[in-house]
Design a protein around this nucleic acid. Sequence first.
DNA 1: CGGGAATCTCGAACCGGTTCGACCAGTCGC
DNA 2: GCGACTGGTCGAACCGGTTCGAGATTCCCG
Lengths: 339, 339
Amino acid sequence: MNIGEIAKRAGVSRSTVSYALSGKRPVSDDTRRRIQQVIDELGYRPNASARALANGRTSTIGLVFPPAGNHYTGMQLDFIGSVVEAAAAYDYDVLLSPSGVDSDRSFQRLLAERRVDGAILMEIRLQDDRVDHLAALDLPSVAIGRTASADGGRWVGLDHTALAAACVHHLSDLGHHRVAFVNRPERLLRAGYESAHRGLDGFTKAAAERGLTVRTYSCGDDAPSGQACMERILHDDPATTALVTLNEAALGGLYRGLAHAGRHVPRDFSVTGVVAGRWAETVTPQLTAADVPAEEMGRLAVDLLVERLDHPDAPPRHHLLAPPISLRASTGPAGASSA
Amino acid sequence: MNIGEIAKRAGVSRSTVSYALSGKRPVSDDTRRRIQQVIDELGYRPNASARALANGRTSTIGLVFPPAGNHYTGMQLDFIGSVVEAAAAYDYDVLLSPSGVDSDRSFQRLLAERRVDGAILMEIRLQDDRVDHLAALDLPSVAIGRTASADGGRWVGLDHTALAAACVHHLSDLGHHRVAFVNRPERLLRAGYESAHRGLDGFTKAAAERGLTVRTYSCGDDAPSGQACMERILHDDPATTALVTLNEAALGGLYRGLAHAGRHVPRDFSVTGVVAGRWAETVTPQLTAADVPAEEMGRLAVDLLVERLDHPDAPPRHHLLAPPISLRASTGPAGASSA
DNA sequence: CGGGAATCTCGAACCGGTTCGACCAGTCGC
DNA sequence: GCGACTGGTCGAACCGGTTCGAGATTCCCG
């Protein structure tokens, strides 16, 4: 049932029905009521494709996230959920695109075929051609994370440098001197993932300032890799007493590695890092960590994008978040076991 | 740049361009080459909305999942990922719809406005009006889980009854007599979630057959609730020696509750349940569980839906999965501690 | 050498909406 | 009493594709 059918049954023209629905021109109360009644009877809803074609907007935003090859982390889940919810509040739908590279088939589909009005890009790399690619297609976008040259863009990011440094300071203040760093997988580091790079940077610099002895590791995004990584850490330097991790998915494995080595957390070994609060609470003892505010980030990203869509010449804005470290139970003074 | 522009530059009509692209009518090699060259030069891609309007298919499937009010579980994440990936393989996009109820605004948007060609429904309830609602709108759908009356439909489900029973048998075989059951939140049970109901059923019946003493609990989808639930279990019956859980998100909390009560897993207490393998591995000791094959389920759901979309009169099919219990390290013989 | 089929191409109509310009009342002001 | 303005409605054009029917060539065969 289309708008012509409604018009016929209400005894008016198609355009009048359209105006009655959109309110863009006055329609007499009488006519409007008649139209509304027909619509209610037939349960009519205007066809989205036709509307999109006519007015050039799909009311859909694209969420470009990495393909499942990499395991998803809990943080990504929270993020997706909050984006969908925030978008719904603005009457936008969310189209998912699994896409790492800009030449991707699905990236093309979504963007070049104008399936969406704008896009949110997850898993940003320091050099990320996707951003420019989108700009070239004249599609508004918001990045989650900031590229190396993101001064003028729209993005919401986490200050990984500062967060990793905060973790180091926390451990250093507790008297730890030999600290390990557990990063995301090697593959992501090589691809230039900004969180992995900036986190590593922040860690390294802060550790150098505090004069700590450090080792850095890459670790797969799953529990078994975490356990293996922990074994390597203790093998490489058994005197290590603490670690900082960016790798949420490996967390359970890191804990298990410590348990198997007979190291008690936090008495013998302190663990901290950058992890969404909800997941920090699943381990025992609960993780002292900089809580990634995934939900807030999703909301902010949608706000930024919608602002751009509604006001094409609004100046770009961005949000750099640096949540404080939540003290839970996984860190303690160095040397507590021998004290 | 639209098809008319391409036609003009290639010196042919719009229809010829269309046929050159779709191959639905022969086009001379010469013309085709000229057209292709113009297309490549301009980077032209046909507009998705226009195409959808013309041929009545959006090449998009809707994924209807519960609103974020309930926390997402890891299983849902894996599921979403696999759906997106499987859909991409068939050249379908995935539109997310956060929607619990069928009268939902976003449910209406997606379906009545024909934004999608079909839908996959997550978090099915025993009586789920959404299925009928979709059928009434003449929209193909696949349910994840089966309603009480799902004989003729398309669905892929987990045999929660059998899985919960298998857990009971496993524990009973190990000599446990006093067993607790940790279900999803009360709220979901009241709403009629099929997994919660069938799981509870399977547990109760199997326990009765084996003559076990049982208590059943509902527990929030997060670690703190899990911990609280564990405390209640041990308070209500300190002689409890094992539990079965359907609640993945509470798992970490349950373990913590046991640790705080000084019960060692699996020496003093056995834990098992229905949990995605990836998450079963994050706890220590790793959970012996019926591994939810979330990825496979997502793939199968997409297969079923695409089959229906491509062959409208293919007879409905379904898949009822019952993965075996993976023996890991969280269960052991009853009374091991006193032996 | 004429007629029918096959090949290639074009114009027009259509999908289901939105929007512009125009027309026809009435009303108001002077 | 006439022009200007306002409110309400309509028809037509348009968004950017697809598809149908038919025309123009070429080719083959009797």
